[in-house]
Simulated scan of single mutants.
Amino acid sequence: MSTDRRILLFDLFGVIARHQRPGAQEKMAALCRAPVDAYTTAYWAHRPPYDTGRHSATVYWTRVLRALSRPACADTIEELRLTDIDSWSRVDDRMVAYVQSLRGRAEVALLSNIPADHADAFLAAQPWLHHLDHVAFSGKIHAAKPDPAAFHHCTAALNAAPAHFLFVDDREDNVRAAQAHGMNGHTFTGQDELTTVIDAWLTSDRMHNAAP
C-alpha cells in the first residue's frame, strides 16, 4: 500500500445531505394514528436492526406499528416506507459540488448509516454517488457507525491503512470512533471550516489527527 494516500471519508446526513425533513415525524405519526411522542419513540427504538440490514423495511414497520398497537397492513407499511425515504432525500447542493471537486486531489468515499432500501433510493436519485471511490451504506455492509466494523469495512474495501483517511461526520461520537480505529477525524460544523481543515490535511507532509 502507498504511504502517501489521502482518502476523504464523508458521512452523509448532516454533512452532504440534510437531516430529516421538518414535519416528517408528525406526518408519519398521523399515518399511524398515534401521538407524535409515542411514534418517535417507536421509530428510533426499532431502527438499529433496520439500519444494519438485519431487518427488512416490512419487519421494521411492522414492529413500529405493533409497538403503537396499530394494525400492520401492507398499504400502511408501504406508505410509511415511502414517506420515510422522502423525508431523508434532501441534499446540500453546495456540499455535493464541493465533495465532487475534491476528487482531483484525493480519493473520496462515503460512509453512512442508512437502511438498504433508503440507500437504493439515494443511489437512484443522486448519480454523483456512483463516481466516488467507494460508497458504504450500513444497510448494505451490515455495520453502522460508531461500530468499528463500519470503519474496518472502509479500510479493507479501499485496501488502505486507517492513517490514510480523514473522516468527516457531524456527530462527535462517530468521529471519536474513527479516531480510535486509527483514522484522522474532523467534526463537521460547516463547509468553510471543513475546507480549511481539508486543505491543510491534503498539503501536510505526514498524516496527523485533524482537530475535531
Score class of each variant (00 low, 15 high):
A74T: 09
D75F: 13
I77R: 01
E78V: 10
E79W: 04
L80E: 12
R81H: 10
D84M: 01
D84L: 01
I85E: 11
I85K: 12
D86Y: 03
D86I: 05
D86R: 13
S87D: 15
W88H: 09
W88D: 05
W88P: 03
S89Q: 14
V91P: 09
D93M: 03
R94W: 03
R94N: 15
R94Q: 13
M95D: 10
V96S: 08
Y98P: 07
V99M: 13
Q100P: 14
S101G: 08
L102W: 04
L102F: 06
R103M: 05
G104C: 07
G104N: 10
R105D: 01
A106Y: 05
E107C: 01
A109Y: 00
A109E: 00
L110R: 05
S112C: 10
N113K: 01
N113F: 07
N113S: 09
I114W: 06
A116N: 12
D117G: 03
D120I: 11
D120A: 14
D120G: 09
A121P: 05
A121L: 05
F122R: 14
F122A: 15
L123K: 13
A124K: 15
P127N: 07
W128L: 08
W128K: 10
W128M: 10
W128T: 15
L129N: 09
L129C: 11
H130R: 15
H131P: 00
H131F: 07
L132P: 12
A136Q: 10
F137N: 04
S138G: 03
S138V: 06
I141S: 12
I141L: 12
I141C: 13
A143C: 13
A143D: 11
A144N: 03
P146G: 10
P146A: 06
P146N: 06
P146K: 07
A149W: 04
F151G: 03
F151K: 09
L158I: 05
L158N: 01
L158W: 02
N159V: 04
A160Y: 05
A160D: 00
A163H: 02
H164G: 02
F165Q: 02
F165L: 04
F165M: 07
F165R: 04
L166K: 11
F167C: 04
V168E: 01
V168C: 02
V168M: 08
D169I: 05
